[in-house]
Design a binder for these strands. Structure first.
Lengths: 332, 332
DNA sequence: GTGCTTGTCGGAAACGTTTACTGCAAAGTA
DNA sequence: TACTTTGCAGTAAACGTTTCCGACAAGCAC
């Protein structure tokens, strides 16, 4: 149905090897022949078949992007960086939404192998403390990575992020500071908690276990946790939420309980999703350079793909988080 | 590097046609041979090569998703529906972010043709009133569609949406109602404006041209437009914003001008992105069933792909928008 | 004139599948 | 018995490229 290289060859009365060379701007074809071929290709509305090309070159110029949830604003920001850079380099990206399910993550990794993607970028659902996603393709983790993974990764220094957040609250004068997290098992989660602990010990304080709570990644969960805490009458005067979506839920919960932020409870989040800066939230937070992380991940992956002859050592990029102080964290 | 069907054939001492049949559960291979082959495939860690399969079957089980901006929460919601349904049906989706640039949209459509995607779902940047994206693949438009396109589309009844929004404001008692839109050239944009006009004439009112403003899709633009309007001292008492992102910008602009919503200016948006429901915004809006739209678009596309023998007539699905009244639109 | 380089092109294999066609033995039918 | 059918398996072509190898003529140096 589509015109092929052979159709062009027939019309140009040359062999199809020559057509291929002409089309790919390769050395060894007479300029006149070349331009004649190009013209015919144009006339025939020729569109090269990337699949056939992929078969012989065993390169698909395709990468997989496996992430937990397109609907959580953190991930699209990372995805945008990945997509933009990949496109610049001629790669297309498969969107794979795991819905926070380990099972689907595994399935997708296998599927991408079957589709002969050249590589994969994974924002792992589990954070993979216990279980590392088994990928045979060139792989880079983004946002969260198993601790001893042999693959490259682009993350921020979560320990430092947790430290900065907590230190900030401590310096605002708070001594009881709660931690509300997504999961006990993720690397990023653990590190943020670790930073939290270090800030405490740095100031000679002791975190209190009853103020460390886990839920999941949803806003509603943050809302529920804080409401329960407040209703029980025993709640910390400041809270470090492991991500902004949780934090915004918590913000609502506090307000619905008739308390104020930061007067009654101070709050700091993590990620700096776009909405956090809105006037209505004014959420203090730890900023992750999301697009930049996406770009970096794509850069590393493509570098690895294209130098697969002499493989490079896995790169561990750790970007700096940044404290963003808005109005939710300190009383004036 | 990867094991192929031939490796399996050699080991099983059968022809590779038999292996293919066994692997694909086709009729005509002895149960014992089949299970022997399956076992060997497993041992060899065989992963079928979707590219080679695609070459012979001229089906890639891949669709392209072309959208303006992953970072705008409206699109990920639609994308989630598309991705989920496609995955159920065995299709993978290419993420193509046009960044609201016509040029990139065109490039992507061509790229997807080269990659032999089986079809494309497009949320067109221009809304294509003047220019329809030229796609040779099976195509369905989502969210916005050129008026006389020969392709299928899934949109909401934007005229009705605009009508509902405006009617609601009129029934709240407003007589001067502004319209702030993204573009004069998009179909959806035009329709929403048309609904706005109809509501006026239905109530025997006349819209005032000086209160109809255009900008683009960004929050900041909404902010700027309203601030200018207010500073000029001549502003409508109610505003219908063509989408929620704009509306939220407008909300900020109003507040920063020292005015209140809805007491000084009433506001209604369009789309019902997740954040609109937040306590802090309480934005009245017109709800689009975004995930459902995505699903529907994917369903139609795959239907068209798989019945390409006897092509079906293009389907125009028009879903009903729904008025969601929160606190930004009516004084109590 | 001989030999070598250079430029241009064609032939053919290869990538990993699917599938139409064919072959053949065993089983069933008349 | 002679035939048709059935079940199983192999052969080979095809999908649309890329690329290695070799052919051949023209131009050059000796």
């Amino acid at each position: 149905m589509n015109a092929t290289i052979k159709d062009i060859a027939r019309k140009a009365e040359v062999s199809y090897a020559t057509v291929s060379r002409a089309l790919n701007n390769k050395y060894g074809v007479n300029p006149e022949t070349r331009s004649r071929i190009l013209q015919i290709a144009k006339d025939l509305n020729y569109s090269p078949n990337a699949i056939a090309r992929g078969l012989v070159s065993s390169r698909s110029y395709t990468i997989g992007l496996v992430l937990p949830d397109v609907t959580n604003p953190y991930f699209p920001a990372v995805a945008a960086g990945i997509e933009a850079y990949s496109q610049e380099r001629g790669y297309s990206v498969f969107l794979c939404n795991t819905n926070w399910e380990q099972q689907r993550e595994d399935n997708y990794i296998q599927l991408l192998a079957e589709r002969r993607a050249d590589g994969v970028i994974i924002a792992p659902v589990g954070g993979g403390i216990n279980k590392e996603p088994q990928s045979l393709l060139p792989t880079v983790f983004v946002s969260n990575a198993p601790r001893d993974t042999p693959h490259s990764s682009v993350v921020i220094d979560n320990i430092r992020g947790g430290y900065l957040a907590t230190k900030h609250l401590i310096e605002c004068g708070y001594k009881t500071i709660g931690f509300i997290g997504v999961s006990e098992h993720g690397m990023a989660d653990n590190d943020r908690l670790e930073g939290y602990r270090r800030a405490f010990s740095r100031y000679g304080l002791e975190p209190e276990a009853r103020y460390i709570k886990y839920g999941d990644f949803r806003q509603q969960t943050g809302y529920n946790i804080i409401r329960t805490l407040i209703e029980d009458g025993d709640y910390p005067k400041a809270i470090f939420a492991e991500n902004d979506v949780l934090a915004i839920g918590i913000l609502h919960g506090i307000k619905d309980s008739g308390l104020k932020v930061p007067e009654d409870i101070a709050l700091i989040g993590f990620d700096d999703i776009a909405f956090s800066s809105y006037q209505e939230f004014q959420l203090s937070t730890i900023k992750q350079p999301k697009e930049q992380m996406g770009r970096a991940a794509a850069e590393i992956l493509i570098e690895e793909i294209e130098s697969s002859e002499n493989p490079t050592a896995p790169r561990k990029v750790i970007l700096e988080p940044e404290l963003v102080v808005r109005k939710s964290s300190c009383r004036e």
